[in-house]
């Protein structure tokens, strides 16, 4: 049986499903017997999910306008160089 400390060290890889079957089995057996680690595992999984589900906001219009202006200047300068 793994200790809680050992379980926590493997938690990220467990959640990312990047561990081998044997270790996975040991981790799963740990959480069925350790309610604290089960809760930590469950809430860590939800933490990752809630961040992954966050849609990026639109870039504010004025910020976008300044970006476009800077890019157009850059493009004009590049074209100028090519022609020259």
């Amino acid at each position: 049986m793994l200790t809680c400390k050992e379980f926590l060290q493997e938690l990220s890889d467990y959640l990312d499903e990047t561990i081998d079957a044997e270790l996975r089995k040991k981790l799963e057996s740990h959480i069925t017997e350790c309610p604290n680690c089960w809760v930590i595992c469950d809430t860590s999984k939800k933490t990752i999910q809630v961040y992954k589900g966050m849609e990026p906001q639109n870039v504010p219009k004025d910020v976008q306008d300044r970006l476009m202006l800077a890019l157009q200047k850059k493009m004009a300068a590049k074209c100028g160089k090519v022609k020259a």
Partner: peptide, 20 residues
């Protein structure tokens, strides 16, 4: 990367659990 990710995830879990 892995050790920092684990640490970050656990810290965020802790902060979010206080709220959720």
């Amino acid at each position: 990367v892995k050790s920092r990710l684990l640490r970050a995830r656990l810290e965020l879990r802790e902060r979010l659990t206080r709220i959720f």
